[in-house]
Design a protein around this nucleic acid. Structure first.
Lengths: 214, 214
DNA sequence: TAGATTGTTAATCGATTAACAATC
DNA sequence: TAGATTGTTAATCGATTAACAATC
């Protein structure tokens, strides 16, 4: 069964469904309807059904979706039904926080490395994981077959480090450095720019003021 | 001149243009073309021109855009051409990191409060700003006329705190808690879910493997 | 059978891309 | 004037919403 190359807009919603299913299964709920999923996610029931139907007919008409079955399917589609490893490059405040966050809260992905170049943080322990020098990175990537990396280093060093990551075999990068990264076509970069997320929210406060002044 | 209610897809790109303009101005560059902006951002030149033209004719045909002039316009459109304040609610690892990040790196927005309920972090100083008890929040919001808040608390407490924020007058929330928040229509919530961002990237590694096995 | 809910097809909406006239 | 680049209109693309037939 060859998986179709699905739109990323759909893929990004699947982990949200997955988390809800995990919670339902923990509470021994067997069946869930698209309508209930809708009220829990804020997406419309139609959209949820369409998202799931894109990959197959996972539900039962008149009844709903079996939580355990759907969970298995989602894990398989996203690619979380195997050992998954990631590393965090940059062990400043943000990198440390993300490393810890994923070590504690992400049930499907193991953080197997934390890297930096500053002597101040190398050797520091984050939830039992030691920060290592950047030079150790290729070895860890190789050992754990790491394909996805989190980047939390200053923009000035980002491109250099990305080149190393790509050379070592990483094919997907979650980038927090506020800069455009150049990578080969087969590498996927997803940018999260905290400054931009915050600044763009201020637009709404402008709209509010205009409404007030009418 | 009434501002039109622009698509948020455009608004989110404006701070990216703004950052590039800031850098250019620092280097005394007077003029920039949409083509150069394209190579710096990764967006097409057509899209950039269309984004800017949505708000007015800011460029000069045959020449390009004046950096200083365009920067002023963007600041005004986004709503950054005034005193802007924000607060961070939740002073754990993530909250502390974001607080520090914005205190240091965000040139247009001032962090005026850091709040938590745990005695362990209350009183802690982050770049000279003291973590205060949640009970002090309404007062600070009022004093600085805070309209935008960053939320980095556990999901279980998120809705309660959001209700307080809304009651105090906050109209936009950058939410890192992995849960759906219920707010009145006039309040804008932008969710960033780090678990989901990371998990969805693993989809690409599945695609890669399939390609390999052909 | 009647009621419920999925899965699919069609219609709508919005965003991006392409083409080019306007004009510096 | 010739060359360059914007701003705008038209065409395309993709995602969401609506409607409903299929079926448990």
């Amino acid at each position: 069964m060859p998986r179709r190359n699905a739109p990323f807009s759909i893929i990004r919603r699947l982990p949200i469904y997955l988390r809800i299913l995990d919670n339902l299964i923990k509470k021994d709920v067997d069946i869930i309807s698209s309508r209930t999923l809708s009220s829990r996610t804020g997406f419309t029931a139609e959209q949820i059904r369409k998202d799931l139907a894109y990959f197959g007919a996972f539900g039962t008409r008149g009844t709903g979706y079996n939580t355990v079955f759907l969970r298995e399917k989602l894990l398989n589609i996203i690619g979380l039904d195997k050992e998954n490893h990631t590393i965090v490059v940059g062990a400043g405040d943000l990198g440390t926080a993300f490393g810890r966050y994923n070590l504690i809260k992400n049930p499907y992905i193991g953080v197997v490395g934390l890297f930096d170049i500053s002597d101040e943080v190398i050797g520091k322990s984050v939830e039992g994981l030691m920060v290592q020098h950047l030079d150790c990175m290729p070895e860890v990537i190789d050992k754990y077959n790491v394909k996805v990396a989190i980047l939390t280093i200053p923009s000035s060093q980002a491109q250099t480090v990305v080149n190393k990551l790509v050379k070592s075999g990483v094919t997907a990068i979650l980038n927090f450095a506020p800069t455009k990264l150049n990578v080969p076509d087969y590498v996927h970069v997803h940018n999260i720019d905290l400054t931009i997320e915050l600044q763009s929210l201020f637009y709404f406060t402008v709209l509010e003021e205009e409404k007030d002044s009418v």
